[in-house]
Design a protein around this nucleic acid. Structure first.
Length: 431
DNA sequence: TGTTGTTTACGGATAT
DNA sequence: ATATCCGTAAACAACA
């Protein structure tokens, strides 16, 4: 079960001069901050066996990385309430073996509510009393992939597009884990943005000078997380045009361009290195390509590709459409696929799709424990906004909080604060 | 010069 | 077993 590395950094620490572990936590935190840490839920496979085996003693307690020290000193702790956070609600889908974690997380996340497990000798109670045990959870890696995180950030932005630095900031604001090892994960973010077709680059308009482009979601990529669970995509979104290009350059008839003296593969030869094959989704690409034999000049295709969005932008530029209007259009496009009702309808009425895993518990996008709609609810909560305002006063002008976290209140919303929400969809409760 | 963006390469985890 | 997804490192180029 526990096959996935829980803390990959630990295994790769030796490579970096500033190597550090997300487990680090020797600074003090108030209860709200602790809750924030718990919001950085461990990996979904963070199973009970790990907990029951007494994880913390064997877990390396690492030195505080200088950068994190600095970060934490400069950055007030977020007052995120992890009540009902993904890790808590995740347990709903983890089965009975997760019950102890469920209780544990609920307790830690909420603070002591005076209820819960009262059995005197329970491991849970011992765990509660063991602060080291608690601390071992801090800065645990959130269970969301980088693609998920980027998607969250973009979808949560008013314009549905963000700069790279804004994406960074959103992630760091939401997940303290990512205030560490920034070079590492930010490289991965950039890689994800470039590598995945679901992200498209939107050039800056002259009236918005600055560094770097905006990043948005491909209008057709909205159903990447078709069950609403933002842990792992059901399937990788692939821009068909780009895929055709890649395939055309992989085909035997398309030999490696000898003019490429660098020895590097051309971009279109690349693909997913370990996916030396086309997706099943695209297994008919060969025939497609035979229909479009050659002539798929890279430039032409790039032009084709130069992003429908950009074309849209150009098109609407002539119509005096503002950047905001354009983003609103993108928003609508994404929203169509992301609308819960729409997705639910897709789930319940669409014929079985062989490449989609089935959620055994019948989760819909709106109620899945890892749904973005839970993490980033649409409605703001004024009290949390106030708290966030206080916490973030002068923190960072790039912070998405003023217009994103503040508006969506990823934290401390009713969902997170309602004990009733500990009731799982399976009818069990973690309280 | 630091940031942003692209690409290659590799290995682990997960799904089928 | 294989396919696919994901994370990470790193080289490199372009840009502000």
């Amino acid at each position: 079960m526990l096959t996935q590395k829980l803390y990959p950094d630990v295994n790769t620490m030796s490579t970096g001069s500033n190597a550090m572990s997300p487990m680090t936590s020797t600074y003090s935190m108030n209860s709200m901050a602790m809750a924030a840490q718990m919001n950085c839920s461990p990996q979904p496979m963070f199973g009970s066996s790990m907990l029951n085996s007494g994880m913390s003693p064997s877990m390396p307690m690492n030195r505080i990385p200088p950068r994190m020290d600095q970060s934490m000193n400069e950055t007030p702790q977020l007052g995120y309430s992890a009540i009902g956070s993904p890790i808590s609600n995740m347990n709903a889908c983890m089965g009975a073996t997760m019950s102890s974690i469920n209780n544990y997380n609920a307790t830690i996340g909420r603070g002591d509510l005076g209820g819960g497990d009262t059995s005197p000798n329970s491991a849970l109670q011992r765990a509660r009393a063991d602060k080291t045990y608690r601390r071992s959870y801090t800065h645990a890696k959130p269970p969301y992939s980088y693609i998920s995180l980027i998607t969250m950030a973009i979808q949560n932005s008013p314009q549905k597009m963000l700069t790279l630095s804004e994406i960074y900031q959103f992630i760091m604001d939401l997940f303290p884990f990512y205030r560490q090892n920034q070079q590492r994960w930010q490289n991965s973010i950039r890689h994800s943005l470039s590598f995945n077709d679901c992200f498209i680059k939107v050039p800056r308009t002259p009236d918005k000078p600055g560094k770097g482009s905006f990043w948005s979601l491909h209008p057709d990529s909205g159903n990447m997380f078709e069950n609403g669970c933002y842990l792992r995509r059901q399937k990788r979104f692939k821009d068909e045009k780009k895929e055709i290009i890649r395939a055309s350059h992989k085909s035997p008839s398309h030999s490696v361009d000898s003019s490429n003296s660098s020895g590097k593969k051309t971009p279109l030869q690349h693909g997913d290195d370990k996916s030396h094959h086309l997706d099943k989704n695209n297994e008919n690409l060969g025939s497609m390509l035979s229909l479009h034999p050659t002539k798929l000049d890279v430039d032409q295709m790039n032009l084709l590709n130069a992003n429908d969005l950009h074309n849209m932008q150009q098109h609407h530029h002539h119509q005096n459409m503002s950047h905001e209007e354009l983003s609103a259009m993108i928003n609508r496009s994404n929203h169509l696929a992301l609308t819960s009702e729409h997705q639910a309808a897709m789930l319940h009425h669409a014929p079985m799709n062989h490449h989609l895993k089935q959620e055994p518990t019948g989760y819909t996008p709106s109620n899945h424990p890892f749904s973005i709609t839970r993490l980033l609810p649409a409605e703001s909560k004024s009290d949390i906004k106030m708290y966030a305002d206080m916490q973030y006063a002068g923190y960072n002008t790039l912070s998405p909080l003023p217009n994103s976290i503040h508006s969506h209140s990823s934290i401390g919303n009713d969902y997170y604060n309602s004990p009733s929400l500990y009731h799982t969809s399976a009818g069990t409760t973690s309280l």
